[in-house]
């Protein structure tokens, strides 16, 4: 093997071990009892147990939390896509007063530190009576996911030649017909990528999710903190919950992997 090829392989192996190590440790922890976690340190559990997982699957509040998380994440994705697709279409096909400024303003929203919004959002959503519902979190998250979705979608749409729109109109399609039957399928990968990022961001965000929920809509990320037992943190259960939280994401990546590779290339990137 040529020396360079060897170095490349070494780099890759080291890097992937690096990526996998903390995850492997957490996986291993999820199968250990608290006692074992606190006393011995070994990669494989000495006395493997599924008690942690059992607790999560049986205790209702874990299940509720999971559903809570999933609901605002899905809500966010749906709302984001619903408003971003038309907006991106406008940016891509038309020029209108203030369009460049508007676009830039959208991007600047991703620059504000989240902590800034905590108090105002708390007051806002309490005032409109959406506090402690998935809607509050979903809407709050849209602040960050809409700009990115528009950015991504605009790139994709600009890659579709305008001639396709024009031909469809000449052929007699109504605007909605054209949009639904011709345009949307063409930008499928773009929607996939945008949805992926909306989902991703919403799923991992914690601060706003914690601030805007009380008891009813508490997401799983927050429930993790609840596991403060008498001895301190309930490490085993936390680890198991952590593992479970990775799974939806992994599934999502698997489904959009083709779009991801193809997608970025087609988009504004």
């Amino acid at each position: 093997m040529k020396p360079r090829r060897l170095w490349v392989n070494v780099l890759m192996i080291v890097y992937f071990l690096f990526l996998a190590a903390p995850l492997a440790w957490m996986l291993s922890m999820s199968f250990k009892t608290n006692a074992e976690i606190l006393t011995t340190r070994s990669l494989l559990p000495q006395q493997p147990t599924t008690a942690n997982y059992e607790e999560i699957f049986t205790e209702p509040f874990w299940r509720e939390s999971f559903i809570n998380s999933l609901s605002y994440v899905l809500l966010n994705t749906v709302i984001t896509l619903a408003v971003s697709v038309p907006a991106a279409y406008a940016f891509s096909r038309f020029s209108f007063t203030g369009d460049n400024h508007l676009f830039f303003w959208l991007l600047t929203n991703r620059m504000a530190p989240e902590a800034v919004f905590l108090l105002p959002y708390f007051q806002l959503y309490s005032a409109i009576k959406l506090f402690d519902t998935p809607y509050a979190v979903a809407l709050a998250h849209t602040l960050f996911s809409i700009p990115l979705a528009i950015w991504i979608l605009e790139g994709f749409m600009s890659g579709i030649p305008r001639e396709i729109d024009e031909t469809a109109f000449i052929d007699g399609y109504s605007f909605f017909g054209f949009f639904r039957k011709i345009f949307l399928p063409l930008i499928g990968p773009g929607i996939g990528v945008a949805a992926f990022f909306s989902f991703l961001f919403s799923w991992v965000e914690l601060l706003m999710a914690r601030t805007l929920t009380g008891v009813n809509a508490k997401p799983i990320a927050v429930t993790l903190s609840r596991s403060l037992g008498a001895e301190g943190w309930d490490w085993g259960v936390i680890a198991a919950a952590g593992v479970l939280m990775i799974i939806p994401g992994a599934i999502l990546i698997y489904f959009v992997r083709n779009y991801l590779a193809k997608g970025f290339a087609l988009g504004r990137v």
Binding site: P22, L200, W203, M245, I246, P248
Partner: peptide, 23 residues
């Protein structure tokens, strides 16, 4: 590779913190 690469990005940020703390 893509899936393994994607995993760190898909973990809630507090879980990331917790994983590394425990680690």
């Amino acid at each position: 590779s893509l899936i393994v690469l994607g995993l760190p990005l898909l973990i809630p940020w507090n879980v990331v913190g917790i994983i590394w703390r425990v680690f």
